[in-house]
Structures are given as C-alpha cells and as structure tokens.
Nucleic acid binder design. Structure first.
Length: 736
DNA sequence: GCTATCTAATTTTTT
DNA sequence: ATTAGATAGC
C-alpha cells in the first residue's frame, strides 16, 4: 500500500499493536488498553489517520467522559492535523447539543434548563411533598440515587413501577413519576434525562437517527468500561448502519459501577458487534517496574476478571513506600514534608495526592499551607455549587427559560426584597389554581395587588425581570454584569458584611470565565453558556501548568499521570470504603480504584495510613487497608512516620506559648470559614507563636463578625492585626 | 420578613 | 466538625 508522507508521519514510533489499532479502517474495533499503554495516543492518531485517508473531519465523533479529556484530545488532534471539524465532546454535552438542535421535532423547548444535582434534589423534595410523603422519611438524596440508577438503565416511571415489589420501591416509583412532572413543568432535564431523551429520539425518530448516522460515520468512545446502558444504546444505535465503532477502555479501571456504569458493555463488546477486531495494549510506558508489578499483583486479587499481563521496559525504580502514621495530622504533615523535600523549590506540578473521600483533603490542605507548599484542589463543581454563583446563574436561567420556576423561586427574594415565604406560598397557590406559571402570575396586576404589603416588591421584581429579559443577550459577560448590577447583587455581596468578601471574588471569577467563554465562542449565546456551566466536572478545572501540587479524589485521578503520587488513608473502611465492603463486586470495584490510583504514578509512589483517624469529630482507631497486604513484599518498603510533623515539631522550638498559630489562612486563596467566637482560651496577654512572625503577645482581642480579631505584638516585627480562625490555632503539647 | 441561635444529620465516589 | 434546616425573638 502506498502511503503519503503525512500518513507515514502519523505512524512513526507506534508499536505493532498501536499501529494495528490506528490503521484499522472500517468495522468494530475494541482497544483493551492497560494503564499507561498509550491509549490517548492511539485515539488521537487514529482520528488523524482516518482524516489522512480521506474521512472528512466532521464525520468523526469522539466521545469522552469529562470535558477535560475532550479538550485534551481535541488539542492533540489539532496538533496532528491542524484545525479539524471533528466533534470531540462528552456524552452529556453531545446529547444536550443535539436535543437543542432537534428540539422542535422532539417537542422539547430548545431553551430547557439542565438541573444539576442540587437542583434535582430541590425538585425531588418538591415531588416527594406532592406525593404526600415527608422528605424526612424519604430523603431526596437517596431517592435521587434510585431514580438516577433507574434512568441509566432506561427505566421510565411506568417500567420502574412495574418492577417495584416492595413498599419502599413502590413509593419511590410514585415520587419518580411526580419528579418527572416537576421537571416537565420547569422545562428542565436532569443529567440522566439528557441521555435518556437522546435514546428516545434515536429509537423513535428514524429521520433523526438517519441524519445522525450519516453525520457521524466513525465513532470513538473512550473509557468504554464506564458507559451505562443509555450510553451503550446511543453508541450502538448511532453506528447501526456502518458499524464503525471504536471503543477503548480497560475493565480493570471500571470505577463507576455505583453510577450505573455497566462493565458488561465492554466485556460483551465482541458479542454485540460481530467481527470485532480486538487490539490489546499491555506494554506500559508510564511507570517503573516496581510500581507496575505492585499494581498488577493487587488487581490479580480480583476474581471477576480476565487476566492480562502488564509489563514495562522502564527501569525498576524505587520501591513503593508504605507509611504508617500516628494520625491524620501526622500523615498530612509527613506528606507535606516529603513533598517539600522532594521538590526543593522545583516543580510542584510533578506531585499529586489522592484520597478516597473528599473529607481527607482538609488536614492535607492545612499541612501544605503551613509548609508553604502551593496546591490545587481539583473540585470544579464546588465552585458552581456556591450560593452566590448559583444565585447569579439562576437569574440567567430565569431569563432564558421562563418556565424554570425552581430558578425563579430561588432568586425571587435574592437579594432580600421583602418577598417572604408567605408571599411565595400565596403566589404558588394562585398559579396552581389558574394553571398559569409563576412568571405569568407575577405579570397579573390584579393578583399582585391582592397580596398586601408584598405587592410593591413583587411589582418591582416583575419589572426587573422584564428588563433583564428584554435587555441584550450577549456577550455573556455583559449580560452577567448587567444582572449583577441591576439586581443589586453587587452591592449585596461587596459592601455587606458578607462573610469575608469571598462572595464577590467568586462572582468576579465567574465574570472572567464568562469573558473567556465569549472569546472562545464568538457565536455563543446564553443557552449554550448555561449548558456548559452545568456540565462541568471536577477534573475539568485541573490545570497542570499551575506549578502546584494536585489534590483530588481517586475517581478524579483517572486518566491523569504524575511523576510522584501520594495516596493517603489506606485504611479499612476508607479504601475499601465501608459502604462498599458488603459484596464482592463492590469490593472489587474498590480494588480497581486503588489500582487506578497506583498506576497514575510514574516514578515514586507513597501509600500511607494513620493509626488513628478523626471521623466527624471523634477519633477512632483504624486498621490498615487489606489492599496493602496484597502488594508484593519485594516491591514495597515499609516505614514509620516517627513524630507528627508540623505543629508538634514547631512546638519544640518555642518556650511556652499559650497557642500556636498556623500561617494565617487569610493569606492564601484557599480560604475557609472558621468557627465563630474566641478560641483556645486566648485572652489579652496570652503569648502565641506564629511560624512566620515568631513569638508574640496578644494586645487586644475581640470579635469581628464571625471571626476573632487580635492585635498581636510580635517580638520580631512589632504589632500586627490578625484574623484568627479556629482552624489556625493549636494548643502546644504539654511536654515542652 | 429578617436574623441569630439551636438542632439534627451527615460523608463515597460524580456526568 | 460542619452545615442545613428549624425556631424564636426582633
């Protein structure tokens, strides 16, 4: 076969197996790719190769699970072929986009809102009450999970109800039905609906299916082991005509079973798609021999799996370190110390810390902060979950989607404009009786006038909304600024004794992200912007170029790699998590999670556990994770973390202060509200030690809003005013 | 209607 | 330990 130079260039430096996967042209292809085996490279080169051999870019669809992965893939494809019209995105954003495109044929309103988890919970609370049940006995969070699982298995309320045998499930079915009505009346879809409605569209509307099958002639799906039933059907139906589906994944890295991911999708791929070409990528280019051998041994303990051999030609490297620490604080201090020592002012990018549950990040944050180690927490959703951000976005949603009552009711009294619960209740009652939306009721002077002293504020609110709706709708940045100014949110958040002023910082951050959006999407509009913000996830916010240590959950770590990895909290009940230890398949998923974490490491891997761990305030004795015992002894070095680092070692330097201050948390950007009131029994005259300013005496101490404000006279620098948070203070140990 | 204080419930992972 | 929701007092 004659190949052009550009094609040859694409195939350079590929191993035999990679070459096969890249050059496979038509028909189903399954790439079983072990960790660090060059999977992303295969996908991107395959896309480029398809294009080099005559496939139009716009006929290629590559689906990922996170926007981050999509962005990464897109930039790598662009690096190979230059600008491409290829669709590379997540399942959810593809569906959101297509549902808007075909809204009319699907009798959907194109400006539908996308409810995130918090919105869904609110809607569920509503649905539970409407079903005559008390949310106390039917917690929305639990119901939400049930419904989500049902949806990911394509079970509608009717089918779910049919299958409900016990009382509890029957009630959930009732709530489920109601919940769908609530979504419907808000013109809203939740995350699962995006997939579900797409499945419906593809199954029931042959013309849409045809169009899309013609548009997307080559389909690539990454992390196939994490697809759920709905995603499986979407992939399968889209390629029915041409069978050009390329799935990549690794059954050993399936960690989303709890979210409805069905591992049998990848295991049964050959059966679903006859004449599948299977390519196995087992050579690892990422990790040292010790790391890979240990991870491989661990995963071999899983019974429900097909064995494969992972191997590498990389050097042997250092042994894995398994560290036993006294408690969580000592563990965090140890990690911080080791990082500082490893990096030595060099590149913090190289280091990552993983944990099973988010709550473990707290002591780590404190330790890193006081050790002066820059860090970055991968928690994108947390930003969009903040009150002030949700408030501003709710205004946008109310503008775009007049049926979105959830958003409307959220902001009807934000900032406070004297429209209280009673008035809202009355308003809803009127709407319910007349069948009109709240928005319409708001525009009916006759009704408003009958609502007593709230009439004025309601009228003003209606006028405000109209103004916003009729104002310019782009660029998004301008719309945001207008909303913030006109609604007085700006005044509310900046001048007000609003916490510590972070609220306005966050809003400003939102505005600059909107500006970025406008830049990236010259054709963008509000709907699209809202869609993007609702579909961001944790990893999306991770920026490896920041020069900071990355901290994230094990789930968020998938797909990433770092030269140095710390895994903390290797304890029974935490890394196999207690909620997952009940049955074999859940335990095996925990083991896969551990496997995923370990295989992120390139050169160094440190796994630690603490003998005592604080859970919800109280300290408990722990047992080391059973997974540690499954690692091969010859690749592991056990060590003991002798003294708790940080606080206690500091204490030894000091004569006898009454309290130790951590480096002030107000300095960093990662602020967290502390506890109110006076702390640690500090009074005027108390002596304190601060890691930066040294010894000092409290001259004045008092309350400042939620915080304690102290003027401290330091021996070195003289008097300083400091805001103290509970989290910043420690009692020195007694034996000094 | 708003605010400050008390209480109960919570924590597995997330598109 | 932290936080959301409930309650009481302004």
């Amino acid at each position: 076969m004659i190949q052009s130079t550009s094609q040859q260039h694409l195939l350079e430096n590929l191993t035999c197996a990679q070459h096969t996967a890249v050059t496979h042209r038509d028909g189903p292809l399954l790439v079983l790719a072990g960790p660090g085996s060059g999977k992303t490279r295969v996908i991107t080169h395959r896309v480029a190769y398809l294009m080099a051999t005559g496939v139009q870019g716009e006929h290629i669809l590559a689906l990922t699970f996170t926007n981050k992965a999509a962005a990464e893939m897109r930039s790598r494809v662009i690096g190979l072929v230059g600008a491409a019209k290829t669709t590379i995105c997540t399942f959810h954003s593809l569906c959101a986009r297509l549902l808007r495109e075909f809204a009319e044929e699907l009798s959907l309103t194109p400006n539908f809102s996308i409810f995130d988890r918090a919105d869904s919970l609110a809607a569920l609370r509503e649905a539970t009450q409407q079903s005559g049940l008390d949310p106390k006995n039917w917690p929305p969070a639990a119901t939400c999970e049930k419904i989500s699982r049902a949806k990911s298995k394509l079970l509608r309320p009717a089918e779910y109800q049919e299958r409900a045998n016990d009382f509890y499930t029957k009630q959930v079915a009732k709530i489920y039905r109601r919940y769908q009505q609530v979504l419907e009346s808000n013109s809203a879809l939740d995350f699962d609906d995006l997939l579900l409605r797409m499945v419906d569209a593809l199954r029931e509307n042959e013309s849409i299916r045809r169009q899309l099958a013609g548009r997307y002639r080559y389909i690539l799906i990454d992390e196939y082991q994490d697809t759920n039933q709905a995603q499986y059907v979407i992939g399968r139906v889209l390629c029915r005509d041409h069978q050009n589906i390329c799935a990549t994944g690794d059954p050993d890295q399936s960690i989303y079973g709890w979210r409805g991911a069905d591992i049998s999708n990848i295991l049964d791929f050959e059966r679903d798609f006859p004449q599948t070409k299977i390519v196995r990528l087992e050579q690892n280019y990422r990790s040292t021999k010790h790391i890979l051998a240990a991870a491989d041994r661990l995963i071999k303990a899983n019974k429900l799996r097909r064995d494969k051999k992972l191997w590498t030609e990389n050097p042997e490297g250092e042994k894995i370190e398994v560290v036993c620490c006294a408690d969580g604080r000592a563990e965090a201090g140890y990690v911080a110390e080791r990082i500082a020592e490893y990096v030595q002012g060099g590149s913090y990018n190289d280091v990552a810390i993983f944990y099973r549950v988010n709550s473990l990040s707290r002591p780590l944050e404190q330790a890193l902060r006081s050790a002066g180690v820059p860090y970055q927490m991968v928690r994108g959703v947390a930003f969009y979950a903040r009150k002030e951000i949700k408030d501003v976005l709710a205004y946008l949603r109310a503008i775009v989607n007049p049926n979105d009552e959830l958003s409307l009711l959220r902001i009807i009294n934000v900032p406070a404009r004297k429209i209280g619960a009673k008035t809202v209740q009355a308003l809803r009652e009127h709407s319910r009786r007349s069948g009109a939306t709240i928005r319409e009721t708001l525009a009916t002077p006759g009704i408003i006038a009958g609502l007593g002293r709230a009439a004025g504020p309601l009228k003003q609110f209606a006028v405000l909304l109209d103004e916003l709706v009729n104002g310019p709708q782009r660029p998004v940045q301008k719309v945001l600024e207008r909303v913030i100014r006109r609604t007085n949110l700006e005044a509310e958040y900046s001048t007000d004794r609003h916490k510590d002023g972070t609220a306005m910082d966050n809003i400003n951050e939102l505005i600059s992200s909107a500006a970025q959006y406008d830049k990236d999407n010259p054709e963008g509009n509000l709907e699209d912007y809202l869609q993007q913000t609702s579909l961001v996830c944790d990893v999306d916010s991770f920026d490896p170029s920041q020069g900071a240590v990355a901290m994230m959950t094990l789930h968020a770590a998938k797909g990433l790699e770092f030269p140095v990895v710390f895994m903390v909290g290797l304890e029974d009940g935490l890394l196999p998590h207690s909620r997952a230890a009940e049955n074999r398949s859940e335990l095996e998923e925990e083991r896969r999670l551990c496997f995923v974490g370990m295989t992120r490491a390139q050169r160094r891997l440190v796994m630690s556990y603490a003998r005592y761990r604080q859970v919800r305030g109280s300290t408990n004795r722990t047992v080391a994770s059973g997974f540690l015992a499954e690692l091969p002894a010859e690749s592991v070095r056990h060590c003991q973390c002798e003294v708790s680092a940080g606080t206690e070692s500091l204490a030894k330097l000091v004569k006898t202060p009454d309290a130790l201050l951590q480096r002030s948390s107000r300095e960093g950007s990662n602020r967290r509200a502390g506890r109110s009131g006076f702390v640690a029994g500090l009074i005027e005259g108390s002596s304190v030690y601060h890691p930066r300013y040294g010894l000092g005496k409290i001259e004045q101490i008092g309350r400042f809003g939620k915080f304690t404000r102290a003027v401290i006279d330091f021996e070195e620098t003289g008097p300083q005013t400091m805001m103290l948070e509970y989290a910043d203070l420690h009692k020195p140990t007694s034996e000094m």
